[in-house]
């Protein structure tokens, strides 16, 4: 199944999967959640993934983000078959090629906003390398957080910040190492409408400014309309791939 010829062969695909199935053991039996997914994300593209709750979107994103291993099928990130790599190389891909924004922000509570934002650099670099590039990364994170309107929140702990503020830090964290791929799982799902829209604007602005490919799970039709492509998922399958008009 990991035969790369099965992947859609766009020259500019930064992320793709082919024949991905995922099943979980439930009691004695295995319950299949994903029934063979093929998709690709092209460089700089903005792709929305929609579907009813429980369709398997989060499961798919975890697989695309290399956090979860498909029961069958393969995932290619930046041209490499992720699950045939060593755990270390795969961790490097996660670290440098993929930015992940979660529904629940997932910041480390013991770190300040700024520290959370530079965490990917800390993970990437050795102590010495980080020390010599420290100023650069802190600067980059500070600039981003300032742009996101968090200039006076840099030293705050996540528990001292609102959900919108936390999600903006999470976006800064995801973009710190300039990954070609950004995966966002209902980034505004936990925010009220006004806040959510502001956060979304930031996310979309950054995406187009950087030309990073974005894969976005959302329930918001208006947002989906602003994406170049929309995929509909139902019961573990992609039902419709529409660059064409979205059925309403």
């Amino acid at each position: 199944m990991s035969d790369p010829t099965q992947h859609p062969l766009s020259a500019d695909a930064v992320l793709s999967c082919a024949g991905v199935r995922r099943s979980f053991p439930v009691g004695e039996r295995r319950l299949e959640i994903l029934h063979g997914i093929n998709l690709e994300l092209r460089a700089g593209e903005r792709l929305a993934l929609m579907g009813t709750s429980g369709a398997g979107k989060t499961t798919l994103l975890h697989i695309l983000g290399l956090l979860d291993r498909p029961t069958e099928g393969s995932v290619r990130v930046a041209g490499e078959d992720a699950w045939s790599l060593s755990p270390k190389r795969r961790a490097n891909l996660r670290n440098q090629k993929i930015g992940f924004v979660f529904q629940f922000y997932h910041l480390l509570p013991e770190l300040s906003a700024l520290e959370n934002a530079v965490l990917p650099a800390m993970i990437k670099l050795s102590r010495r390398a980080f020390r010599s590039n420290r100023a650069e990364f802190l600067d980059r994170a500070t600039t981003m957080l300032t742009r996101f309107g968090l200039a006076d929140r840099l030293g705050h702990r996540p528990s001292q910040l609102s959900g919108g503020e936390q999600q903006r830090i999470a976006i800064a964290r995801a973009l710190l190492l300039d990954p070609p791929i950004l995966i966002a799982d209902e980034p505004t799902g936990n925010l009220d409408r006004g806040t959510g829209e502001k956060v979304l604007e930031i996310l979309l602005d950054e995406q187009s400014a950087r030309g990073v490919a974005l894969m976005l799970v959302t329930h918001d039709e208006r947002l989906a309309k602003r994406c170049e492509r929309v995929l509909y998922m139902e019961d573990g399958l992609i039902q419709a791939d529409s660059s064409a008009p979205i059925p309403t």
Binding site: A91, F100, K124, R173
Partner: peptide, 11 residues
């Protein structure tokens, strides 16, 4: 979270 950000199990 650390794993998602690229930490290895060994890390």
């Amino acid at each position: 979270i650390l794993c998602a950000l690229g930490a290895t199990p060994r890390g």
